[in-house]
Design a protein around this nucleic acid. Structure first.
Length: 822
RNA sequence: GCCCAGAUGGUGGAAUUGGUAGACACGUUGGACUUAAAAUCCAAUGACCAUUGCGGUCGUGCGGGUUCAAGUCCCGCUCUGGGUACCA
């Protein structure tokens, strides 16, 4: 009979639900395991193949752990705030709250058809006051510790829409996606969290977590710790002003021939001479629409203008011109750069273009120090034109010059980070209101904790001109100052949604908890999360913010661990015709028709079989029939063994001596498969795990010719391995076999008979000059002399070595015998 | 631009430490079953050359290198994907 997936899946989903099979007892800490997949963003599109690809294998891993006796906690929830719902509202007039709730209800129903082990009692969503209240509480704790502060920062501003745009809403040519107007950069006062205070700890913590190397490397580079020197340049004609620059190359200080300031720095306005004011203003205007990526591109034509002011190089008191150029960024380092055209590629190009002097202060050992530079020399070498440091090694001079600067109060050793503080203000509606009011007398005042949450009002004009939508709601905007009771205004911005996702894993443990942000007892017991799965696109932002917040929570005594996620896996992206699936591109593949045709188990197993989980790939349904055939064959295998476990009992080990040849090979294959399967699943290599089971299935063709005991032995093990990958089918087969209790209600995992894994004979490959010429089987661990003799007796070996001199012979035990001839 | 990945038959992919390249599937071809088709089962299937048979050469994006031996290590590229701080 064909495997009746539709009935089977419905039946077991109901059984699981009735038995509360997947309700996790969080008080049971023995063999506890917290496995978490990044929560779902409830956009308008339904669950697509990408979601299935993310959740199904993750669930299979969790099920494998459950089968092995772990108390598994696997929750699911909704990352419900965010920009797309708001844009959808602007387009359609449907309020974000209404569309989000509808979407979540749809998605929940679809999630349930997947048949995952989610503990639905732990479900959460971020857009409800019970959740976002604690974002506000967290904000206030950060504020109290001096880790939340306001400063000016640029936003994308569309002068025509009179609104702030997300980077995503700016098209590649720098125009607004709604009206094609050129987008400008505009400064606004916004809230920041001092993640930079944790830079070193975020760096060091990477060594303690089991994350992909590439992710740790990306975070390391993102934090970008560099050791260098801060040098103070004087400003000609201003006794009270100085320009501080950070450099990793203090050895080139004598080669500085000009200084570059970021055009946005206030100092620029102060220093620019009258005759240069017009050019400077025009230049600043001309770069208003450039993105940081464009500005810092090393292939772009260099631009800049002189300010007319001069800096004084502290090492030689030389007067050098001060320029402004777009490649200097106000938010990196000090916003000022010392230019050494002789020894920096970008400076060389800039100097060549604007006829600024290029001076050689380092030359390659052994070369002529007087030869003019035709390109920047960036390698270390010998010092020249550097007064008392001449003829020294440039690397040694780094610290020598820094020390000398320190002694004269002209600079000091400095560590610089590429990491910037976390800007959390968003000029948007659909997010957590910032719990701050502004009072004319008291200034910025936090909302008292007992008054939280500051509720997000429903009534709002999303297209409010000039900035944040909340500003247009007078009832929300006008508040009384908690300090003096006078009139005050609320902060009308909302928080970055990364705030929501920075601690949700703690809230899952008890989403209804009302006495605090989360149940700290459960937090201590269940975090760090044992396994976290999500896209690699989160490598540097979400995953860094969550680590930061976790460390902060530790510092205020809320959690007792240093890191939120012990182990991390990234699933790959499933594309369609090479493009990421998205509703806007209209290339979303709906899994529905596949579920109808093959069932949820086959579909999930096919997704796992497609390729390496971390790689993803382009969607194609070409191979799904192969998985379906496998399932049909496996099903008929068990169907033929109805009630077998009621009639026979299989020992957990067999004496191989007493088995027939066929039985022995089946017995060995089953054990070998178990051994391989465990390693593959453990490491999220589902494609090879499925392949291993297919091999087992192919190898079980002789099963009817085995004793009932062997048949039961093989069937039980096959079904338990199938259970994580095809849970409904496995339950069904387990019950066909005659078991009364469900697999996941009474998880079971079988021991491997190690003695069955040992191969008695091995295949030796004989190579001549690295090419395979013969192969033969010998007993494992045969003497080298025996191998050599057998190898030389091979006709082909003789033929390929005949008349040649043997140079050497290499034997790799149990593997290869290589003869090198000339 | 910068940071991080990836590239293997007609297709998806496999290959712990460098040690038989192509597991497992899809597809294709041939066969069995059938009045026929579907389904199922069996066999073959990297390319090229040779062939009655034995066999041989090439082959893991491109160009170099290290090694007895390279998909795997090193150097230099190309293309594709992710991120680049307001998509999440």
């Amino acid at each position: 009979m064909k495997y009746p997936f539709a009935d089977v899946e419905k039946k077991w989903q109901k059984t699981w639900e009735d038995n509360k099979t997947y309700k996790t007892d969080l008080t049971d800490l023995e063999k506890k395991l917290y496995t978490l997949v990044m929560f779902i963003y409830p956009s308008g599109s339904k669950l697509h193949i990408g979601h299935w690809y993310n959740y199904a294998p993750t669930d299979s891993w969790a099920r494998y752990k459950k089968m092995r006796g772990f108390n598994v906690f696997e929750p699911m929830g909704y990352d419900a705030f965010g920009l797309p719902a708001e844009n959808y509202a602007i387009k359609t007039g449907i309020h974000p709250q209404d569309s989000t709730v509808t979407n979540i209800d749809d998605i929940r129903e679809q999630l349930k058809t997947m048949g995952c082990m989610y503990d639905w009692d732990a479900e959460l969503m971020t857009c409800v006051p019970e959740y976002y209240k604690w974002n506000q509480w967290l904000f206030i704790q950060l504020y109290k510790k001096g880790l939340a502060y306001r400063k000016n920062a640029p936003v994308n501003w569309c002068p025509s829409c009179q609104t702030v745009l997300a980077n995503e809403q700016v098209q590649s040519d720098g125009t607004c996606e709604r009206c094609d107007t050129m987008v400008e950069r505009k400064n606004l006062t916004q809230w920041f969290f001092k993640i930079t205070n944790y830079a070193d700890e975020l760096l060091d913590g990477l060594k303690t977590i089991d994350w992909p190397d590439k992710t740790k490397l990306m975070q390391e580079n993102w934090i970008g710790k560099s050791f260098g020197t801060e040098v103070k340049f004087g400003v000609d004609g201003y006794k009270d002003k100085e320009i501080r620059v950070f450099t990793t190359r203090p050895d080139t200080l004598f080669g500085v021939t000009y200084v570059v300031l970021a055009p946005e720095l206030d100092l620029v306005q102060e220093l620019t001479t009258d005759e240069n004011k017009k050019a400077v203003a025009e230049y600043i205007e001309s770069i208003k629409s450039l993105s940081e990526i464009e500005r810092t591109s090393t292939v772009k034509e260099k631009t800049g203008v002189p300010t007319g002011a001069y800096a004084i190089n502290p090492v030689n008191d030389e007067k050098i011109p001060i320029w402004i150029a777009d490649y200097a960024l106000a938010n990196y380092g000090t916003g000022s750069v010392m230019a050494v055209p002789g020894h920096d590629d970008r400076d060389f190009e800039f100097a060549a273009k604007f006829n600024l002097p290029i001076r050689k202060v380092i030359f390659e050992k052994g070369s002529d120090a007087d030869v003019e530079l035709t390109e920047a020399y960036t390698a270390p070498g010998t010092m020249v034109n550097s007064e008392q440091f001449n003829e020294m090694d440039s690397i040694e001079c780094k610290s020598k010059i820094t020390d000398w600067l320190s002694e004269n109060d002209n600079g000091e050793k400095k560590i610089n980070y590429r990491l910037r503080d976390w800007l959390i203000s968003r000029q948007r509606y659909w997010g957590t209101p910032i719990p701050i009011v502004y009072c004319d007398t008291c200034g910025e005042v936090t909302v008292p904790e007992e008054e939280l949450p500051v509720e997000l009002p429903y009534e709002v004009d999303f297209k409010h001109d000039g900035g944040s939508p909340l500003e247009g709601n007078a009832e929300f905007l006008n508040a009384t100052c908690p300090k003096c009771g006078g009139a005050a205004k609320r902060d009308v911005d909302t928080m970055d949604t990364f705030m929501d996702s920075s601690w949700y894993y703690l809230r899952y443990l008890n989403p209804k908890f009302s006495d605090g942000m989360f149940d700290t007892k459960l937090g201590d017991d269940w975090t760090p999360v044992d396994m976290y799965v999500g896209g690699a696109e989160h490598a540097t932002m979400h995953l860094l913010y969550a680590r930061f917040i976790h460390k902060f929570l530790r510092d205020i005594g809320m959690v007792n661990s240093d890191e939120p996620f012990k182990r991390l896996i990234h699933q790959g992206t499933i594309t369609n015709n090479g493009a990421k699936m998205s509703k806007s591109k209209g290339n979303v593949v709906n899994p529905g028709s596949f579920i109808d045709e093959y069932g949820s188990d086959v579909f999930r197993m096919y997704l796992m079989f497609m390729g390496p989980y971390e790689l993803g790939g382009d969607w194609s349904d070409k191979g799904i029939v192969g998985v379906d055939r496998f399932v049909q064959r496996a099903y008929s295998l068990f169907e033929n063994n109805k009630d077998l476990s009621k009639t026979v009992a299989a020992p957990s080990k067999f004496d191989m001596e007493k088995l027939t040849e066929i039985e022995k090979s089946v017995y060995q294959l089953v054990n070998k498969t178990l051994s391989k399967f465990e390693v593959e699943i453990e490491n999220y290599r589902f494609n090879t795990a499925v392949a291993t089971l297919m091999e087992l299935n192919n190898g079980l063709k002789e099963l009817p010719n085995c004793s009932n005991e062997i048949q039961l032995f093989a069937s039980e093990r096959f079904i338990t391995m199938l259970a994580p990958l095809a849970p409904h089918m496995a339950e069904e087969c387990w019950s066909i076999l005659g078991n009364e209790k469900g697999l996941f209600d009474n998880p079971i995992w079988f021991e491997i008979d190690e003695s069955a894994l040992v191969q008695d004979s091995v295949t030796i490959i004989v190579q001549v000059n690295g090419k395979v010429r013969a192969k033969f089987d010998l007993p494992r661990d045969s003497e080298e002399a025996t191998v050599k003799e057998t190898a030389w007796n091979e006709e082909k070996v003789k033929a390929h070595t005949d008349g040649k001199t043997v140079v050497k012979e290499i034997y790799v035990k149990n593997k290869i015998y290589n003869i090198v001839v000339r």
